[in-house]
Design a binder for these strands. Structure first.
Lengths: 325, 325
DNA sequence: CTTGTATATGAAATCGATTTCATAAAGGCG
DNA sequence: CGCCTTTATGAAATCGATTTCATATACAAG
């Protein structure tokens, strides 16, 4: 690196103290017009840019937040992250994105890293296996998204979630109204979302006086390794005519199976909507989550918390929209 | 925030100087066994974590890199970013992702921000409108990905690119071999990729003794606003039976038009492959770019440059793979 | 002409680490 | 026992900003 231009050099150039240069940037009303001009000339001339590092050091704020999710490759999270980044940029914040792959150890390490970097806050889709967030983050503000926080001090934190149960209920309900006679489900057991979506599934069956058979439900580990066999098993042994998929990754894997086995007749529903669902030969019913909105809301919640650390905890639940094709 | 635990408190706890505590972390071989033990006890007891900020300040390295792309929502870039993040994490680096939306001003602002934060380097898919990168980044290492850097000192930088021309050639060639008689193209004029892909398109036509008609080519601004009309225009006025799309976003918009106008017969090829192409009713020919690999390569290139600032510039070109459906 | 009040500026402390330089204690050797 | 080399440690400077406190000047009021 070529040597950085510091406040010292500007001070020298303008023949004033470093304090005065700093004031030109932060409290110009305390500085005389001529001095301001001299200092600004120096800044232009030497192309001065204040070191964000040094400022953070002094001010105890980094204007940086962390976003901890399972995987940016999942388009739901991608959109969410984009929502956060846009909101953050507008307010002068930078975003560090961390992929946990649903691995609690990775999550732990990333959180530590963010604490070390003194992020101003963290937006977190937690794998949910941590007993005590507070001791991990040492009073750093946390906003939980997508998944309900678990553990003893979970209720201390702001959340932005969706109504998984209702969304799933509507999707399964729509499947049945379209004539499905036996609906099976594949959901992820990770975090709280899987359970809640399964609840919606069960309630929809019950509402239509369908029996709930445990063998009609498969739990997938979200990483997509075994989805194919699970799906195939449901389809072949249960002879189901409709499948409810707990997320878009699962649906993708189900589609692979259907294609490979040339199963043309299957009603499909899935939690989370993607644009390309429009182009698939099956008329996919989907629960559209406002991922981008969740991102912006989470960021705003975080900012509010930062501005007012003692205000009461908020729990935001955003609406889903049923998409019928 | 509750007050942070600093090196000072550890020093106090262990009854040694701050220098010694620092040495326990960085050069333990200079410290006696007993002292190490005392200091480590203190660290455990007080849950000490060194401030990354203070370290960066002293060491002039932040262990942070910037990634500047047009949009994470584009799955090509998502995958690329994931490749970078995985490689970075392994080496203890954090990643700040910046979305330019192909807006040179935004790109400029983000680069400034990264310079202010003293990122150790930047991986950049540039919109290409900057004359002088060097003066912008002040000797910070830069690795260009996806797009060729433009401007006078463009040749000073490492690049990791794909062979756009060859990939496009193969795709269009395959379309024609599948029986296409009039192939049209929609590409993005942004950056160098559009031009190169168009060159491949032209060469493939020529190779098959097809005439090159300028009205068969549409330039789309990548933001997808006008793709629909452009596509419709090509299809209706030119009566083409095959379309080459310059990227996955364009293809998505073309599919929308085809669906809306119920055009069932159209051969399609696209630069960049996505998993869901398998499930679309049209047998999409695609050019599979190793996005994840580009990401890891770019990061490694950046690390190499950091380790050895004076080594000669490298230009890496990764292979694409034709996917025929 | 003295006293008091703005106005403008600088010296020095601070944020939390690392590193250089100096020094004290301990051990080796003649 | 005295001299020299290791070994272990601390004091202080440094990284690049901000902020407090003190001070110097200018000007108004008495």
């Amino acid at each position: 690196m070529s040597k950085q231009v510091t406040i010292k050099q500007i001070a020298q150039y303008a023949g004033v103290s470093e304090a005065t240069v700093s004031r030109v940037l932060n409290q110009p009303e305390l500085v005389s017009k001529q001095t301001i001009q001299k200092v600004k000339d120096g800044m232009d001339e030497l192309q001065y840019r204040p070191s964000a590092l040094a400022q953070s050091m002094r001010n105890h704020t980094t204007k940086t937040i962390g976003v901890v999710i399972s995987n940016v490759l999942n388009p739901f999270f991608t959109t969410l992250v984009r929502g956060i980044e846009d909101a953050a940029t507008k307010r002068g914040y930078s975003v560090i994105v961390c992929n946990t792959d649903e691995n609690p150890d990775k999550e732990q390490r990333y959180i530590n890293m963010l604490v070390d970097h003194q992020a101003d806050g963290i937006i977190l889709a937690s794998t949910g296996n941590h007993a005590n967030y507070h001791s991990m983050v040492n009073d750093m503000p946390l906003v939980f998204i997508d998944r309900m926080p678990q553990g003893k001090d979970a209720n201390l934190y702001d959340t932005v979630l969706v109504d998984n149960e209702k969304g799933s209920f509507n999707a399964v309900d729509a499947l049945i109204k379209q004539g499905a006679t036996r609906v099976n489900a594949i959901v992820s057991p990770v975090a709280t979302t899987g359970t809640e979506r399964l609840n919606g599934f069960r309630k929809a069956l019950t509402a239509h006086d369908f029996p709930i058979r445990e063998q009609d439900i498969a739990l997938d580990d979200y990483l997509g390794q075994h989805t194919a066999e699970l799906a195939l098993n449901l389809i072949q042994t249960n002879q189901c005519d409709a499948l409810f998929c707990g997320n878009n990754v699962i649906l993708m894997n189900v589609l692979k199976v259907l294609k490979e086995w040339q199963i043309g007749d299957m009603k499909l529903a899935v939690f989370d909507d993607q644009p390309w669902f429009d182009f698939v030969q099956y008329p996919i019913i989907s629960v559209d989550q406002p991922a981008y909105l969740i991102g912006t809301k989470a960021f705003i919640t975080l900012m509010d918390r930062l501005a007012n650390p003692d205000r009461p905890v908020t729990h935001d639940i955003v609406r889903t929209k049923l998409v019928i094709r």
